[in-house]
Design a protein around this nucleic acid. Structure first.
Length: 604
DNA sequence: TCCTCGGCCGAGTCG
DNA sequence: CGACTCGGCCGAGG
């Protein structure tokens, strides 16, 4: 296997060392997971001496894109899977017990490498050519300006590409083309810049937002003192929220240091699994999941989630429990090395996790700056901890199964994004694989139908969550250059931060986690579906609506898993806890979020 | 305005 | 031809 791949070209000295891309010498060190010639000792030396920091750049691994036609990238498993307790069973759904899915690979999807129609490939450019070409090839622009999310989706099946574009597609493309070449410079002062300013500067003149219009209307009438008090209050809240968001931003240096360390150890774990283990040697490229990789991390880049997928071709899954989130898994007629973890025909999550943990332990031993956290029961992750410049960073590594098959029937009524993102997007997402993580709830020794809880698996759609959050607009140009900015992500960040502060204040809220916040946002996006409902300048209004949603879920103690409606994510926390939190949030909202005021808490 | 990181995907090479 | 790597380019965020 060594010696494969394109030899490095001798670059001319002035050749573009593209923005932040991996430099050749680093790639040499970084990428060849499967290359025995890889000098591990050298790496270890470097990493240990320098605490991983002196490596000039990211030790990024690259995708073996030919391995299959699915996106191996986008995925996430937000805070919830990594041991949070939000995934609780809900006994309200007695549907189809005994579901059996014979997960044969879908021929339409598993056919390898369908030749793609001419779709304006991004051709390699000479350095001096690059700008010019980008500017003068509308097709190229068009292609490139499809957001990655939609790319990931369209990549799934090529026949989709030949289908006529939806009006949205056309609209987006044409906007982009119109914008693309020469108007690029001019368009700088358009929405983008504006909304940035609107978001982060307090007294910028706004365009006529919904609120501004109201204000203007009021101003024409003889204003009462009540009105102006109200206005001042609103402005104050707006300013506070913007300032809070600004404080939550991650610093570049911190981000850079953390990414280097995390990428390095990640790469070594994968390399170790591939080269030194039998059962995990087929581990696929890491799926970066979690809020850091969704650009939703707040304050510090101190938590990273990575899923390491093992492809399984023919599995049968049986619901474990009633809510459709947990399953027992068995592999049929498969020569998968994971079969060694089968007990009585059931793939034992606990056995696999045990072995995986051992392997990671062996691998990490060489990197003294990383420590392995204790095993947490029910938690699918092996947690590694390190400290960079006095900031503790944790990396959750989750071994998971990647299943290319139709999604479990419990998901049938989930992912209700038709009104928001469109039926086509939903269909495309549902054609992607899903994942199973070795996660259980409650006591591991509890048996159901002869299967121990600790051997159960939970479904994960974190890759879809990630894709949706990335491509979150009803209009495809949402938050892009030339499109209007929305505040969906900002609202979620604020909600997460509020939750974080409230949890610090009251430890009895520990069963509420940021996944609840995220799920609330996803549901909210499905009920307020248009980008206009989430205009960036309307941040405070949108945030308050989101809080109302959250309060309502809490009061009813009912928050359905976005993908599996039969699972109530609030069945874990008690009614009392939910009520308490709802009250607390209401209070904050009514009083203009004193909790966000400087001095109340440190933003960091 | 420019930089970093994460990600996508075409190009190139090997077996 | 499939598997695999390299590296150019993009967007998001800061």
């Amino acid at each position: 296997m060594s010696g494969r791949g394109r030899p490095r070209k001798a670059k001319s000295p002035d050749s573009k060392l593209t923005k932040g891309r991996t430099r050749p010498e680093e790639v040499k060190q970084a990428s060849p997971m499967r290359c025995p010639a890889f000098k591990e000792e050298k790496q270890n030396e470097t990493m240990q001496e320098n605490h991983l920091e002196e490596k000039p750049s990211v030790q990024r691994t690259r995708k073996g894109k030919a391995t299959n036609h699915f996106t191996e990238e986008t995925n996430k498993q937000q805070e919830l899977p990594a041991g949070s307790s939000a995934a609780k069973t809900c006994s309200t759904n007695p549907t189809s017990a005994g579901e059996t899915l014979n997960t044969q690979p879908d021929p339409a999807r598993s056919s390898p490498k369908i030749p793609k129609p001419n779709k304006c490939p991004r051709r390699a450019k000479l350095p001096e050519e690059s700008t010019k070409n980008t500017m003068t090839l509308p097709e190229t622009r068009k292609d490139n300006t499809q957001t990655s999310g939609s790319r990931a989706v369209t990549k799934l099946s090529d026949e989709k590409k030949t289908q006529p574009e939806t009006p949205k597609d056309i609209k987006k493309a044409s906007v982009k083309i119109a914008k693309a070449p020469d108007s690029k410079a001019k368009s700088h002062l358009t929405e983008d810049t504006k909304t940035q300013k609107e978001l982060f500067s307090d007294d910028i003149k706004k365009p006529m937002t919904v609120e501004a219009k109201k204000k203007a209307a009021k101003a024409k009438q003889p204003s009462t003192s009540e009105d102006s008090t109200e206005d001042r209050k609103k402005q104050k809240v707006n300013a506070l929220l913007k300032k809070t968001l600004a404080n939550l931003r991650i610093k570049t240096e911190e981000r850079s240091n953390a990414a280097k360390a995390v990428n390095a150890i990640k790469m070594h774990i994968i390399k170790h699994l591939r080269e030194n283990t039998e059962c995990f040697k087929d581990v696929q490229e890491a799926l970066n999941t979690g809020s850091y990789y969704e650009n939703l991390k707040i304050s510090h880049p101190n938590e990273f989630d990575v899923m390491l997928p093992m492809l399984v071709n023919r599995v049968q899954i049986e619901p474990f429990g009633k809510d459709g989130a947990f399953y027992s898994v068995s592999m049929k007629r498969e020569t998968n090395p994971l079969r060694k973890f089968q007990r009585d025909g059931i793939l034992s999550a606990s056995e696999m996790l045990k072995d995986f943990r051992e392997e990671v332990k062996k691998c990490v031993k060489k990197f003294t700056e990383w420590k392995m956290d204790k095993k947490k029961s029910g938690c699918p992750a092996v947690t590694l901890i390190t400290t960079i410049q006095s900031v503790t960073i944790s990396l959750d590594v989750v071994l998971c199964l990647k299943v290319k098959s139709i999604w479990p029937s419990f998901t049938q009524d989930g992912l209700k994004i038709q009104e928001w993102l469109g039926a086509k997007v939903r269909r495309d997402h549902r054609l992607e694989p899903y994942y199973l993580v070795p996660k259980y709830e409650g006591c591991g020794e509890v048996q159901k139908d002869g299967v121990l809880a600790k051997d159960a698996w939970r479904v994960s759609f974190s890759h879809i969550e990630k894709a949706i959050l990335k491509n979150h607009g009803s209009d495809k140009t949402c938050c892009e250059k030339g499109g209007a900015s929305c505040c969906r992500k900002e609202c979620l960040k604020l909600l997460k931060y509020l939750l974080h502060l409230l949890k610090e204040e009251d430890t009895s809220l520990n069963k509420i986690c940021s996944y609840h916040a995220k799920t609330t946002l996803l549901h909210a996006c499905c009920s307020r579906t248009k980008d206009h409902d989430w205009r960036a300048p309307d941040l405070s209004h949108c945030f308050q609506l989101l809080l109302q949603d959250f309060e309502n879920h809490l009061k009813k103690r009912e928050l359905h898993n976005f993908f599996i409606p039969s699972q109530n994510l609030l069945s874990g926390p008690s009614m009392k806890t939910c009520q308490k939190l709802a009250e607390r949030i209401k209070k904050e909202s009514e009083n203009g979020f004193p909790i966000f005021e400087p001095g109340q808490h440190n933003a960091h």
